[in-house]
Amino acid sequence: MSYLGISCGFHDAAISLLNDSGDILFASHSERFSKKKNDPDLCPGLLTELVNIPNSKAHTVCYYERPWNKQLRQLYSGQGIDWDKLTTRQILKKQMGFWWPTYKNCKIKTYNHHLSHAAGGFQTSPFDDATVVVIDAIGEFDTCTIWSASYNKEGKAQYKLLWRQIYPHSIGLFYSAMTKRAGLKPLEEEYILMGMAAYGITHYEMLADFLSSSEEIRFKYNCHLGVDNYEPEITNENIAASAQFIMNVLLWEVLRRAEDFYNSNNLVYTGGCALNCVSNEKTGTYFENTWVMPNPGDAGSSLGAAALAYGKKINFEGPYLG
């Protein structure tokens, strides 16, 4: 029997299948089958591939975030409530459609968004203990978390939340807002902003314009609302360079805090911001060893949710899983 991890409904939907020996039987993005970039929904091609895998029958379906908590955050942020997305069963029934009867009688487990990120990172890593840093745009209310992670005598993964920053103070939302300010598509073309930074000149005053405290990762403005009108005379290349500078500074602050919190030489860095490889090179300043799982964004959290239900170290042999 197996654990089926699911991430869907916002962007970059994915599924992962683990057996009870910790082997990854299947893991893939929906976009690989639908050909829609960052497809938020579980597409028929992906689900058909899943059910055709030998031993794909799952006894536990694992969802990567807590829908009710996400809806509370949406209400708080003024986005309103999606009444058809209050429970995991509501979401899975809609997302799985024709295939839902195959899984509706399974045990369903739902996990904290950032904890799913943390598990996807730590339980695929080569480490027996680590400090885990999760940075993304928003996961329920969390935007940045630091965890201690280790295995107990029975080999079960243990996590302890050490620090968190919550919405609207968000490194990921800032970077996405700057992506849009530079004329790019947020939640998709941040990698272009990162590359564009090499062609620009840093406006160091941007740090004071946006941050009330870089140490605490506290912003003066809710970047979720956008920054489209920020300093229109600054070129897109200079916006990119300045945004990347701030990204680097804030990551350094988080890593410094993480180093102080937990006595481990190992860092697991995950969440969507861990895709910024320019910033990632700075992790060696604070930790001897760093692991960034091949898919640290929300799609990778499908594997993280399954890992939490499984509980132990995953037999991770490489990223070519689909």
Rank of each mutant, 00 (worst) to 15 (best):
F210I: 05
A241G: 02
L225E: 07
A240E: 09
N229H: 12
N236A: 07
E216H: 03
D228A: 11
E237S: 02
C223S: 03
R218F: 03
N248L: 12
M247S: 15
A240Y: 13
D228C: 12
V227I: 13
T235C: 01
P232H: 11
E233A: 13
I239F: 00
N229Y: 11
N222P: 02
I246C: 11
N222C: 05
F219H: 04
H224F: 15
F210W: 08
E216N: 02
N236T: 09
F210R: 00
T235D: 01
N222A: 07
V249S: 10
E237L: 00
E233W: 11
A243T: 01
Y221F: 12
H224T: 09
A243N: 05
L211C: 07
K220E: 07
N238Q: 09
H224K: 14
E233K: 13
I246W: 02
L225N: 05
H224E: 13
N248H: 14
F210D: 05
H224L: 12
Y221G: 05
R218P: 00
A241V: 00
F210T: 01
F245M: 09
I234C: 15
C223D: 01
N236F: 12
K220D: 05
E233D: 14
V249I: 06
E215T: 15
S214Y: 09
P232D: 06
S242G: 15
L211F: 15
N229M: 09
A243F: 06
I217E: 04
C223L: 03
E216D: 03
S212Y: 02
T235A: 03
N229S: 08
N222L: 00
L225M: 09
A243M: 08
I239Y: 03
R218L: 11
M247K: 04
D209A: 08
Y230A: 11
F245I: 08
I246E: 04
D209P: 15
E233V: 13
F245N: 06
F219Q: 04
M247G: 09
N248P: 10
D209M: 07
T235L: 01
Y230H: 09
S214M: 03
D228Q: 13
N238V: 06
S242K: 13
S214D: 05
I246Q: 04
G226T: 06
I234S: 02
V227K: 02
I246K: 06
I234P: 04
S212C: 03
A240T: 06
N229C: 05
I217H: 10
C223Q: 04
E216G: 00
F245R: 06
E233M: 14
L225R: 05
E233I: 12
A241K: 02
N222V: 02
L225F: 11
G226P: 05
F210K: 00
P232N: 11
R218V: 14
S214W: 04
S242C: 06
F219S: 06
Y230G: 12
E215F: 15
V249L: 15
E215P: 07
N236C: 14
F210Y: 02
V249C: 15
K220A: 13
T235Y: 00
N238E: 07
